Amino acid sequence: MYLGDEAWPDLETYFDSESLALVPLGSTEQHGPHLPEATDHLIAEAFAREVADRTGYLCTPTVNIGVSGHHRQFHGTMWVEPPAFRSYMESLTRNLTAHGIDRVIYVNAHGGNVPHLREVGARLRQDEVAYAIEWMWDESIPDLVDELFEQNGPHGGPKETSMIQFLEPTLVHDDRLQDARDEGVPSVDDAETVKHGSRTFYDAADNTDNGVLGDQTDASAQKGRDLFEAASDQLVALCEWLDAQPFEDLLPRDHV
């Protein structure tokens, strides 16, 4: 069920009987010369809507702009500062609790959001308001990602390229895949910005001139389909697990 499609009287039954919501999040930021700036939030929304359709759980509208200041050197990247993002996400989640939601899955497709969502979730749990956890599709299926790609790249690489080739093929510049590979770097290790155990980089531009890593020519829509189906199964399983937990078991333990 997608919240934005429903009239308010028709949501009463859901809130009377269910307490779980899916909140898709991503970013609007550069993903190299071949992928749209919408890449992350397109992926997040696709997963959340697919799983909401399969399970009947509620999917909220997508948060399209996240913590992306480290991509600011590239045209069109949009971002909010981390404190503003954390405040917004906490407020949004507390809004859901006003309707009876007490467990939330942040269906997140942008790595820059992760530590801030974790902080928000920890605060809400400590206040015993809600149990909110962050989920990233590629981290749910690491073996399949490694099986499909020799060099998957942490940003704008073949796994994200494959996903957009499957979900939104008209938005992929397939004629630029070779240039994306040749003008980028295979991995952070190859960028040689880790010095004596220290991460000396802060921005994406410190590692890669064109904004991406990995071998984009290894991508395909079929691989994207395989990734989407496998990760969707994982998200369905997570929803079912979370829904089955007594709320009191999700709260912080008492002091020893």
Rank of each mutant, 00 (worst) to 15 (best):
A38V: 01
P83I: 01
H75N: 11
L42Y: 09
D10I: 05
R103L: 08
R86F: 00
F149K: 03
R103I: 09
E119W: 01
V80G: 01
V120D: 09
R181V: 14
H116F: 11
D179R: 14
Q222P: 02
S198P: 00
A230K: 11
H99Q: 09
D175M: 08
K159C: 07
R199H: 05
Q165W: 00
A132S: 08
T55H: 12
T60M: 14
T217M: 02
D215C: 03
L35P: 08
A109G: 03
D206H: 12
R72Q: 10
A46G: 04
D226Q: 13
S232D: 08
V194E: 10
L35G: 07
A132F: 09
D143N: 10
E160C: 07
Q151L: 06
E18H: 13
G112A: 04
G184W: 03
F85V: 05
V188Q: 07
C239E: 11
L35D: 07
I65K: 03
G76K: 04
A84M: 09
R94F: 02
D209E: 14
R94E: 15
Q222M: 07
L144S: 06
L177K: 05
H71S: 04
E128N: 03
A219S: 15
H70L: 02
A205M: 11
M89C: 15
A237R: 15
H99G: 01
R199M: 06
D218L: 07
P61H: 10
V120N: 08
F74R: 09
E29S: 09
S232N: 09
Q234E: 14
D203N: 15
W79H: 08
R123W: 01
D102M: 01
L167A: 08
E248M: 01
D215T: 12
H255E: 15
V129A: 10
F247E: 02
V107R: 10
A84W: 01
L227V: 12
E160F: 08
F85G: 10
A38C: 04
C239H: 10
T62I: 13
M1D: 06
P158L: 06
D215I: 13
M136W: 00
P169I: 07
D10E: 11
T55K: 14
V256W: 08
A48P: 04
H116P: 01
N113T: 04
Y57G: 02
F201R: 08
A38K: 12
T28W: 09
D215K: 02
I141M: 05
D206W: 11
D218P: 04
V23R: 02
F228Y: 12
G4M: 06
A221K: 09
I101N: 09
N152S: 15
S91I: 02
V107Q: 08
A230H: 07
V194A: 04
H41Y: 14
L144M: 05
K195R: 12
F85S: 10
R49S: 10
E139P: 00
A231H: 04
E192D: 15
R72S: 09
G76P: 01
V212E: 00
G112L: 03
Y57N: 07
H255D: 15
E81W: 09
P246E: 12
G76I: 01
N64C: 09
T208H: 10
F201H: 12
E183K: 14
A221T: 06
V212F: 00
S232E: 06
M89Q: 12
S198N: 10
S198L: 13
T55C: 11
I101A: 08
C59L: 10
M136F: 03
L96P: 04
R72C: 00
L250N: 08
L58G: 05
D203K: 14
